[in-house]
Simulated assay, not measured.
Amino acid sequence: MNTPFLFISGQEIFVVLLFVIMFFGADKIPEIARGLGKGMRQIKDATNDIKNEINESAKNNTVTTDVTKSLNENVTEVKDAIDEITGPIKRNM
């Protein structure tokens, strides 16, 4: 499957990078990338903390995870069915 990155071609990425360099300057790009990386890391850590708290609270309150497992299986089945339907549509675009 040959899907472009975020539906953007290589030429479009090059033009965007060119504008970023012209707007911010080459010396600011590492600073911006560092800031974006730190922000993404904080978001990932926060979501992991929330997941851990939910799982720990479920264990402490003796909540069974069987319901969540079956729910996840149902969601996966629906997602797969949607992917089967939309697959030919995506390939034709």
Rank of each mutant, 00 (worst) to 15 (best):
M1T: 08
N2V: 08
N2H: 06
N2C: 07
T3N: 15
T3W: 12
T3K: 13
P4K: 15
P4W: 14
P4Y: 12
F5Y: 07
L6N: 04
L6M: 10
L6R: 10
L6Q: 06
F7A: 14
I8E: 05
I8F: 08
S9I: 00
G10C: 02
G10Y: 02
Q11W: 05
E12N: 00
I13S: 08
F14G: 14
F14K: 15
F14I: 12
F14S: 15
F14H: 12
F14Y: 11
V15D: 09
V16C: 08
L17M: 10
L17I: 04
L17R: 07
L18P: 07
F19P: 03
V20F: 14
I21P: 06
M22L: 12
F23W: 08
F23K: 09
F23G: 02
F24L: 07
F24D: 07
F24K: 05
F24I: 05
F24H: 04
G25V: 00
A26W: 10
D27Q: 14
K28Y: 10
K28G: 02
K28Q: 07
I29G: 01
P30S: 00
P30N: 00
E31L: 14
E31K: 12
A33C: 05
R34T: 05
G35V: 02
L36G: 13
L36F: 12
R41H: 12
I43Y: 01
I43F: 05
K44H: 13
D45L: 03
A46I: 02
A46Y: 01
N48M: 07
N48K: 06
N48G: 03
N48H: 05
D49W: 03
D49R: 05
D49V: 06
D49I: 04
K51I: 04
K51Q: 10
N52S: 10
E53M: 08
E53F: 08
E53L: 08
E53G: 10
I54D: 00
I54G: 00
I54K: 00
N55L: 13
N55G: 06
N55H: 11
N55D: 13
N55R: 12
E56Q: 09
E56D: 10
E56A: 08
S57I: 04
S57T: 11
A58M: 08
A58L: 04
K59V: 07
K59E: 03
K59R: 09
K59C: 01
N61E: 02
N61A: 01
N61S: 01
T62F: 15
V63F: 03
V63T: 04
V63L: 08
T64N: 06
T64H: 06
T65D: 10
D66V: 03
D66H: 07
T68Y: 13
K69E: 09
S70E: 13
S70T: 08
L71G: 09
L71S: 09
L71H: 06
L71N: 10
L71E: 04
L71D: 06
L71W: 10
N72R: 09
E73H: 02
N74Q: 12
E77T: 09
E77M: 07
V78W: 05
V78H: 04
V78R: 10
K79G: 06
K79F: 13
K79H: 11
K79E: 14
D80N: 15
D80K: 15
D80T: 11
A81L: 06
A81V: 03
I82S: 01
D83Q: 12
D83A: 11
T86D: 11
G87C: 04
G87A: 07
P88H: 00
I89F: 01
K90G: 06
R91P: 03
M93C: 12
M93L: 15
